[in-house]
Design a protein around this nucleic acid. Structure first.
Length: 938
RNA sequence: GCUCGGUUAGCUCAGUGGUAGAGCGCUUGCUUCACACGCAAGAUGUCACUGGUUCAAAUCCAGUAUCGAGCACCA
C-alpha cells in the first residue's frame, strides 16, 4: 500500500506516456518494468512536484497512526501543547513558523526514541469570534445579538464554529504537523469548561477572586471590559484645549486649565492643582463655575498634578479617567458618569451634547466653550491613547462592576524563571517577564459578552438585585447562603439567577497545559506520562497574556511548572519591517505559498531565516530557495536511480576495500553533520540546523562528491567501482534523509521509500536515528588521509577551472593539463580531477619544461600547467588583450584625471569622491592583471 | 523616563578574540547524458561612530549616533 502511494508520481509520469493505461494488472506490470529499468527516474518529471506527494504521505501517516501518543509506552516522554489558534482564525506566517518549529521538535524527539505527544486544539477566542458572528448576523439578517437573545445567539456561534472552526486545523495538516489529532481539544469543550468553572470557584473560595466597582478599560464597540493587556497604546494627533473656569468668589478672575477631552466637562467635579504650586495655592478651597451643566466645583490640591504640564491646573473627571478617579477617592469627590456604554453622551441636562458620539461631542463642547468666551486657545498635540486590541477604537476608562483575580503563585512563578527552572530561549525575555511579574496588577477577568465560559456564580433570586448592585462581593455572601459558586448549577435552579458575564478567553487558556490532558476529578495516564510538558513554542507578544499566566496556574493548581523550556519565535515582518496585518495587505497566504513551493519548501525556507531572538523580514525569495532545495535533493536521487534501481543501503563500509578518498570524505562529513546538528538542536538554533543541512547536501554532496564519482557510474566503469559508489551514495543519502526529515518530512519520506531505504511497511518518521557514525570501525588515520586527498583534489579542480576561465577556454573540454610534480597518489586521481575540471586529460610528466608564459597553479596536489599551444590563438589573444588593456587604461586615465582635479575633490560630495577612488583602484587592479597575462604570452 | 534588542556586501541576514560569510541580485561563460528550481568563473565590505581592554577587537567593555520593541507617564 505504501509503496503504491510512493509510486503516485510514477503512475502520473506513465500516464503521460501511456494515456490508455488502466488500473489493475497492467499498471503493476508497468510499474515493475519502470521500477527495474535503469532509467526509471529519468522518465519522471525533471522537477519535484510536491503537492500530491505531500497529501499522500500525510494521509499515510494518519492511517498508520504515527502521530498518536501512547501513555503506556516505556519510552521517555516528550510533550508539547500547541498554542491553540483562534477557532475562527486562518493560518498566517506566524503560525507556520511557530508550528514548523514544534513539528521539528516533535519529529526529532521521535527519531531520538521518545514517546511524543503533541497536543493540538483551538481557542474559542471570545471577542474575536463573537464579533465575527455578530457582523454576519447584522449583514445577513439585519439583527443584533440582543434582538435574537442569548440562547439563539450562542446557537449561531456554535453553528459558525462547526462550519469554520476546522479551517485552521486543516491548514496545519497541510503543513505536515504531526499533532495527535485523536486528542484535539477546544477550550469550550464540556470537560475543558469544567476546569474553568472549578478553577474559578476554587479561586473565589480561596479569596483570590472578588467582585467590585472599579475603573476598567471599556471598549465602546464590543461593549465589554478589557484587561490592561488588551489595551494598546498608540500615539495620536490630537488637540490640547486651553479653557478657563471663573472663580465663584472673584467674578472676572479665571483659573486656566488644559485638557484633551472637553467632552467630559459635564463630569467635572473639581479642579486640582499641585499643593506646592505657588501660583494656585490661594485658590485651593475656593470654588469655580463649571459652565455646563452649571455648577460650582471645588479647587483641590493633589500631588499627582504636574505643575509643568499645560497650565498646571487639571480638571477632575473621576468617572472617565483613571488618575482622576484616584484623585477623586483621595479628595472624596463625587463620580458623575456622562457616557452611555457605547461612548455616546449621557447628559440630558445639556441638550446640545446629549446623545452625541464622544468624538462629535468633543468638537461641539469646544465650540460651546468658544461661544461662552471660555476657550483660550487650541494647540496641536500628540499624546498616546489606549486602543481596544480587537475593535481598534479608543477605549474609555469607565467605572463598572467587574470580577477581578488576585494572581496566585506569583512568587513561585517569578522565581522559576529567574532561577532558570523554566529556561527561556532567547534568555533575554526573562527580564521582560520579571518586570511584568514585579509590577503585577489584579486581572479583570469578567467580560460583558455571551460567547465564553459563563461565570459559575448564582445569586439567590429574592436577593439577586441587591447582590448584583452591591459595591463588593466576597466570601461572606457565600457563607450566608445567598450565593452559589460551583462547577455545578444549584439543585433548585428556579430559585437562582446566574451571573451574566463570561470570563476572559485567557482565563481558560492559562489552564491549557493540564486541562487538555486530564478531566476534572479523574486520574489521567496522559498527565502522568506527559506533564509537565517539555517545550513551549510561542511568540514573545503573548508572554503576559499567556506564558506568565500558565506558569502561575501550573504552580497554583498542579504544584509544579507547566513546561521546562520556552522558545520564543521571531516575529515575522514584511520586507519593509512592518508587522504583517490584514489591513496592510502585506501578509502572504501560506496556502498560496504551499501551492507554489510545497509545504516542505515553505517550512525549510522559513526555518533557514528564522534567527534566535530577533524579528525576521519575510521575502518570498527565501521560500523559493526552499523549493529549489527540495528539487536539488530530488534530482540527486533521480540521478542515483538512473545508475541502477536496486538499493544498496546495506553496503558494508568497513569491509569495503575499494573506497576512494571521495567516499571516505563524504561519509566523514555526514558524520560531522550529525554532530553539528546535535549541537545546534541543543541550543534551539533552527536556522543553523537548516543551514548545515543545506550546505552539506548542496556543496559537499552534490557539488563535490557526486561530481567526483560520476566516472564510477559510467558504462566503462568496473562493477566494483560502481557498486562501491552506489553503496556509499545510499548509505549517506539514507542517513541524510533521516536527518533532514524534521524539516522536510514529506520529501524525505517519499524519497526514502522510493529509493528503497525503508523496510516493509516502515515509515521514515518512525525510524530511530542511529547513534552510530557511518565510519565507526574505520581507522581515523585512514579517514583523515583520505579527506586531505579529497580536499587537495577539490582545491586543484577549482584552481584549474580558474585558469580555464582566465584564459577564456572555460567552455572547451579538450584542454590538457600537465602535472609536473606532486604526491604519488595524485596519479590515481588525475582522471577525477580532469572530470571535475572539464579537461581532456591530466598527464603526469616530471620532466616537463613549461614554455615561458605557460599558466600554472601550485596546489596541495602538486604543480600543474596548462600548455597554451593550439589551445588559444596566441596572436588573437594578444591583440584581444592589447585592446582590452587600452580600454582599461583609458578608464584609469579618466579616474585619475577626475581625482587630480582639485575643484572636483573639494567641491563634490565626499561620498562621490569615495566612489571615484574605489573605481580607480578597481580599474588599476584589472589593468595589472591584464598586463601580467599579456606579458606571459610574450 | 526605564528596560531590552538591532546597526556586517545592492537586498535579506549568518558569524567568530586570530585572513570577512551565505542566499538572492549583478557581470561573464555554459542547454555538459540529475537538476536552468541548474553548472562554472567573477566583482562587491572603513563589519554605524568614538574611546578602552588585548600581542591581536567586526567580535569583549564603556560611551555616542541611529532604528525598533516593551513597560510607565501623559491634562
Amino acid at each position: 500500500m505504501l509503496k503504491v502511494i510512493s509510486w503516485v508520481n510514477e503512475i502520473r509520469g506513465a500516464a503521460r506516456k501511456e494515456p490508455n493505461l488502466k488500473l489493475g494488472r497492467p499498471v503493476l506490470e508497468y510499474l515493475a518494468r519502470v521500477w527495474h529499468s535503469p532509467h526509471a527516474m529519468s522518465e519522471l518529471p525533471k522537477a519535484y512536484e510536491p503537492t500530491e506527494v505531500e497529501k499522500s504521505w500525510y494521509q499515510a501517516w494518519i492511517d498508520g497512526k504515527c502521530f498518536e501518543a501512547d501513555p503506556s509506552s516505556e519510552k521517555p516522554a516528550y510533550s508539547i501543547v500547541i498554542p491553540p489558534p483562534n477557532v475562527t482564525g486562518i493560518l498566517h506566517l506566524g503560525h507556520v513558523l511557530n508550528n514548523s518549529i514544534q513539528d521539528i521538535l516533535a519529529r526529532r524527539a521521535r527519531q531520538k526514541g521518545c514517546e511524543v505527544l503533541w497536543l493540538p486544539g483551538t481557542d474559542h477566542a471570545g471577542i474575536a469570534t463573537q464579533t465575527k458572528v455578530e457582523k454576519q448576523l447584522r449583514e445577513e439578517e439585519g439583527k443584533t445579538r440582543r434582538d435574537i437573545g442569548r440562547e439563539a445567539f450562542l446557537e449561531k456561534v456554535w453553528e459558525w464554529k462547526e462550519k469554520h472552526g476546522g479551517i485552521i486545523i486543516n491548514q496545519l495538516k497541510r503543513l505536515g504537523c504531526s499533532c495527535d489529532w485523536s486528542r484535539e481539544r477546544f477550550t469550550m469543550d464540556e470537560e475543558y469548561s469544567k476546569w474553568v468553572s472549578k478553577v474559578f470557584s476554587d479561586l473565589f473560595k480561596q479569596g483570590l477572586i472578588y467582585r467590585g466597582k472599579r475603573m476598567v478599560n471599556w471598549c465602546p464597540v464590543s461593549l465589554t471590559a478589557l484587561s490592561d493587556e488588551e489595551v494598546i497604546m498608540k500615539p495620536q494627533k490630537s488637540k490640547l484645549y486651553y479653557m478657563k473656569y471663573e472663580l465663584v468668589d472673584e467674578p472676572g478672575e479665571f483659573l486656566e486649565i488644559a485638557t484633551t477631552r472637553p467632552e467630559t466637562l459635564m463630569g467635572d467635579v473639581a479642579v486640582a492643582v499641585n499643593p506646592t504650586d505657588e501660583r494656585y495655592g490661594k485658590y485651593v478651597g475656593q470654588k469655580v463655575r463649571r459652565p455646563f451643566p452649571a455648577a460650582e466645583i471645588p479647587v483641590v490640591a493633589d500631588e499627582h498634578v504636574d505643575p509643568e504640564f499645560g497650565t498646571g491646573a487639571l480638571k477632575i473627571t473621576p468617572a472617565h479617567d483613571k488618575a482622576d478617579f484616584e484623585i477623586g477617592v483621595r479628595n472624596d469627590l463625587a463620580i458623575i458618569d456622562v457616557f452611555h456604554a457605547d461612548g455616546t453622551v449621557n447628559c440630558p441636562e445639556v441638550k446640545d451634547l446629549d446623545g452625541l458620539d464622544r468624538f462629535v461631542a468633543r468638537k461641539k463642547a469646544a465650540a460651546m466653550l468658544e461661544e461662552l468666551g471660555l476657550m483660550i486657545k487650541v494647540e496641536e498635540y500628540e499624546n498616546k491613547v489606549g486602543f481596544s486590541e480587537r475593535a481598534d477604537v479608543p477605549i474609555e476608562p469607565r467605572i463598572s462592576m467587574q470580577w477581578f483575580l488576585r494572581y496566585p503563585a506569583v512568587d513561585d512563578a517569578t522565581k522559576a524563571v529567574a532561577e532558570d527552572e523554566i529556561s527561556y530561549c532567547p534568555a533575554h525575555w526573562a527580564k521582560t517577564y520579571a518586570n511584568w511579574m514585579n509590577g503585577i496588577q489584579d486581572w479583570c477577568v469578567s467580560r460583558q459578552l455571551w460567547w465564553g465560559h459563563r461565570i459559575p456564580v448564582w445569586y439567590r433570586k429574592e436577593k439577586s438585585e441587591d447582590l448584583q448592585a452591591a459595591e463588593s462581593l466576597t466570601l461572606g455572601d457565600l457563607e450566608a447562603g445567598d450565593l452559589h459558586v460551583s462547577t455545578e448549577p444549584p439543585a433548585d435552579p428556579e430559585n437562582w439567577i446566574q451571573e451574566d458575564d463570561v470570563l476572559d478567553t485567557w482565563f481558560s487558556s492559562w489552564l491549557w497545559p493540564f486541562a487538555t490532558m486530564q478531566n476534572v476529578g479523574e486520574e489521567s495516564d496522559l498527565v502522568k506520562k506527559f506533564y509537565p510538558t517539555a517545550d513551549l513554542v510561542t511568540g514573545p507578544d503573548i508572554i503576559f497574556f499567556w506564558v506568565a499566566r500558565m506558569v502561575m496556574a501550573g504552580y497554583h493548581f498542579k504544584g509544579e511548572l507547566p513546561f521546562k523550556n520556552v522558545y520564543f519565535t521571531a516575529i515575522i515582518r514584511d520586507i519593509q519591517g512592518r508587522k504583517m496585518s490584514k489591513s496592510l495587505g502585506n501578509s502572504p497566504d501560506p496556502i498560496d505559498l504551499m501551492d507554489k513551493y510545497g509545504a516542505d519548501g515553505l517550512r525549510f525556507g522559513l526555518m533557514r531565516i528564522a534567527p534566535v531572538g530577533s524579528d525576521v523580514r519575510f521575502d518570498e525569495v527565501q521560500i523559493e530557495e526552499g523549493r529549489n532545495f527540495a528539487n536539488k535533493i530530488y534530482n540527486a536521487c533521480r540521478f542515483r536511480r538512473m545508475a541502477g534501481s536496486d538499493s544498496r543501503v546495506d553496503f558494508d563500509i568497513v569491509a569495503s576495500k575499494s573506497l576512494r578518498p571521495y567516499h571516505l570524505d563524504i561519509l566523514a562529513r555526514c558524520d560531522a553533520l550529525a554532530m553539528k546538528l546535535d549541537i545546534a538542536y541543543a541550543e534551539y538554533k533552527f536556522n543553523e540546523v537548516g543551514g548545515q543541512l543545506y550546505d552539506f547536501l548542496w556543496s559537499e554532496f552534490c557539488d563535490k562528491f557526486l561530481e567526483a564519482v560520476k566516472g564510477d557510474l559510467r558504462d566503462d566503469a568496473s562493477e566494483e567501482q560502481r557498486n562501491t559508489t552506489l553503496g556509499v551514495f545510499d548509505t549517506v543519502m539514507a542517513r541524510y534523509l533521516q536527518m533532514l526529515h524534521p524539516y522536510m518530512p514529506h520529501l524525505t519520506e517519499e524519497l526514502s521509500s522510493r529509493m528503497g531505504y525503508l523496510g516493509e511497511g516502515e515509515f521514515l518518521m518512525e525510524k530511530l536515528l542511529p547513534s552510530n557514525g557511518l565510519l565507526d570501525g574505520v581507522s581515523a588515520g585512514l579517514v583523515s588521509e583520505a579527506q586531505a586527498q579529497a580536499d587537495a583534489v577539490y582545491e586543484t579542480a577549482g584552481r584549474l577551472r580558474n585558469l580555464k576561465a582566465e584564459y577564456r577556454v572555460a567552455a572547451r573540454k579538450d584542454v590538457s593539463f600537465v602535472a609536473k610534480s606532486g604526491p604519488a597518489w595524485v596519479k590515481d586521481e588525475s582522471e577525477t580531477i580532469a572530470l571535475l575540471v572539464g579537461a581532456e586529460s591530466i598527464t603526469r610528466d616530471e620532466s616537463y619544461l613549461p614554455e615561458q608564459g605557460t599558466p600554472g597553479a601550485v596546489t596541495a596536489a602538486g604543480e600543474f600547467f596548462m600548455p597554451l599551444d593550439g589551445l588559444i590563438d596566441v596572436e588573437a589573444e594578444k591583440s584581444r588583450l592589447d585592446k582590452e588593456i587600452e580600454k582599461v587604461q583609458k578608464e584609469v586615465g579618466k579616474c585619475r584625471g577626475k581625482l587630480g582635479n582639485e575643484k572636483f575633490v573639494t567641491n563634490a560630495k565626499p561620498e562621490v569622491v569615495d566612489v571615484e577612488r574605489g573605481r580607480l583602484s578597481e580599474w588599476e587592479g584589472k589593468l595589472e592583471q591584464l598586463q601580467e597575462m599579456r606579458t606571459n604570452l610574450g
